[in-house]
């Protein structure tokens, strides 16, 4: 056997014993602290740092699965494509906040807008893109099954009210950035009843655009026409979300509209 100094062995043993006792103490402390009554400590509400213009172009995208990019196998969606294009055009890094949540309806977006951090990001934004309403209107196809009973008008009224709140919030934290409100298309245009569904979507878009025009610098970006003629070429296999080509066309609509006007700040 290798000869180890007995002294060294003893030192190691003593050291290990101390460590052992120390861990035992920590264990006791953990259990004790966990069960000790929480003396309600007021967490100091540090005010978030004021929005500073970092000199970077900041893009914020809000909304539902379209903002998320569902259906694009490359995962980019229109947000990613617009970002790529802007990077190329501005020749600089830009910061992107994609806050889209799949399946979001307008009321959920309204609630999301109440969050402090979201407001902060919106405040810093130089451009804001928004898709919402598709889930309100189509409810996963449910609306189409019984067009009569779905009460489109009610839904639309609530949606417009929520959207108005969203726009108001955006303008309250940021009155500089242009907002790009992306309109709806009719994914069911090749199914039966397409006349009814199309007219509903058109009316929906009209109301949205009308509302948008009552705020400053909110641009309504139509997508209805893109999908009007050859809807199946641009829809993903779920026949609801756009595919890669569809997103490319949407992105081509928005991207040229976004300008970087630094002097504006």
């Amino acid at each position: 056997m290798i000869h180890l100094h007995t002294k060294r062995v003893r030192y190691i043993t003593i050291f290990a014993s101390i460590v052992c006792l120390f861990w035992l103490f920590c264990l006791g402390w953990a259990v004790q602290d966990y069960y000790s009554a929480a003396s309600p400590i007021e967490i100091k509400q540090k005010e978030p740092e004021k929005a500073v213009d970092t000199g970077k172009f900041s893009l914020v995208a809000l909304g539902d699965s379209l903002t998320r990019g569902t259906g694009d196998e490359s995962g980019k969606g229109y947000v990613g494509l617009v970002t790529d294009d802007l990077k190329e055009r501005f020749g600089k890094k830009i910061s992107v906040h994609n806050l889209g949540v799949s399946g979001a309806v307008s009321s959920e977006l309204k609630n999301q807008m109440k969050q402090k951090e979201i407001k902060r990001q919106l405040g810093e934004a130089d451009a804001i893109m928004l898709t919402i309403g598709g889930n309100d209107l189509f409810q996963g196809g449910q609306t189409l099954i019984d067009i009569e009973t779905a009460g489109i008008e009610d839904i639309q009224e609530k949606y417009l009210q929520n959207l108005k709140d969203v726009f108001t919030t955006i303008r309250s934290v940021n009155n500089q950035a242009t907002v790009y409100m992306i309109g709806l298309y009719n994914p069911f245009i090749e199914l039966e009843d397409n006349e009814t569904t199309s007219s509903i979507v058109r009316e929906w878009n009209f109301q949205t655009e009308d509302l948008a025009s009552s705020f400053s610098d909110i641009v309504f970006v139509p997508t209805y026409d893109i999908f009007q003629l050859s809807v199946n070429d641009y829809l993903y296999t779920d026949k609801f979300h756009p595919n890669k080509e569809g997103y490319k066309l949407i992105a081509k609509r928005i991207s040229p509209l976004i300008k970087w006007e630094e002097e504006k700040k």
Binding site: K56, S95, V96, H97, N98, L99, G100, E117, R120, Q121
Partner: peptide, 15 residues
């Protein structure tokens, strides 16, 4: 994300 702020990163995680 083009940013280093932890708030933005955490927000993105939540989303």
């Amino acid at each position: 994300l083009g940013t280093m702020e932890w708030q933005s990163l955490l927000q993105q995680q939540i989303i």
